[in-house]
């Protein structure tokens, strides 16, 4: 069983400027699953994701305590650059490098990590990533276009392509559809289900319906603590906790 847990979080606490935002989180994410994290705004979902790939390292007023194990290795003992290569991240708002071309946005990661040996290999990888992110058809004729000129939904899919180009083991997605319309949201949801074949996906969402539609497991977070966690079908049909029930029914 434990070999099927790709990511294990133990007693994770995060303090920002002395204020405890995460108050002891325990989670186990099974390999090859879509694991949804739900919870009201400000409950600490983004904070949790940013602890996993150690983005908090750069902020002097943030303290992280507890353990995060990726494939059994303590991420805080790893080289952060290696860790972040293994753990891709898609942010709450699209953040491509606006001044770079579509191609370069996707290519920059593999190039910097020296993952490819030839130009052809790089081109194949970029194409593969853009196809996985369902962006290829829209941009294949003009890969030199500046990323800043794409629409919000396209930018977000470009960020997905950029993240998966590194072939990460785990993909962290922070409300990837929060800024998008229904059509783009549907596209991206389809992508995510598709992506699970290759990556384990940890996705934050505000939206219970979205969690129900795409995820295998759900954790419900409230005020920096895990209130309830389990298979999606169970959480949505038989919530044990009153708060979860309210949230699932849209009452919180």
């Amino acid at each position: 069983m434990s070999s099927d847990i790709i990511l294990k979080i133990e007693k994770l606490k995060v303090k920002i400027s002395g204020k405890e935002i995460l108050k002891g989180i325990d989670l186990e994410v099974p390999r090859g699953s879509i694991f949804a994290i739900m919870g009201p705004s400000g409950s600490g979902k983004s904070t949790l994701l940013r602890a996993i790939n150690r983005l908090w390292d750069l902020y002097p007023d943030v303290e992280v305590e507890g353990k995060i194990l990726l494939e059994g290795r303590d991420v805080y003992q790893m080289d952060p650059h290696e860790l972040r290569k293994m753990v891709g991240m898609v942010f709450q708002r699209p953040n491509p490098f606006p001044h770079m071309s579509i191609f370069d946005n996707v290519a920059i990661g593999p190039k910097m990590h020296k993952m490819v040996k030839s130009k052809e290999e790089l081109e194949r990888l970029v194409e593969w990533s853009l196809k996985r992110a369902y962006l290829w058809d829209e941009v294949k004729d003009d890969l030199k276009r500046k990323a800043g000129r794409l629409s919000g939904g396209q930018q977000q899919r470009l960020c997905i392509a950029r993240a998966i180009a590194l072939k990460p083991k785990v993909l962290l997605m922070d409300e990837p559809t929060s800024a998008l319309d229904v059509v783009s949201t549907k596209r991206i949801e389809e992508n995510i289900v598709e992506l699970k074949k290759e990556f384990t996906v940890l996705i934050v969402t505000h939206n219970p319906q979205q969690a129900a539609r795409i995820s295998d497991y759900v954790a419900f977070i409230y005020d920096g603590k895990v209130v309830e966690v389990g298979p999606t079908s169970e959480i949505f049909t038989r919530p044990k906790h009153e708060l979860t029930e309210k949230y699932v029914l849209g009452k919180v």
Partner: peptide
């Protein structure tokens, strides 16, 4: 906790 060593 270990921090990124951006020392250089």
């Amino acid at each position: 906790m270990t921090r990124i060593k951006e020392r250089r």
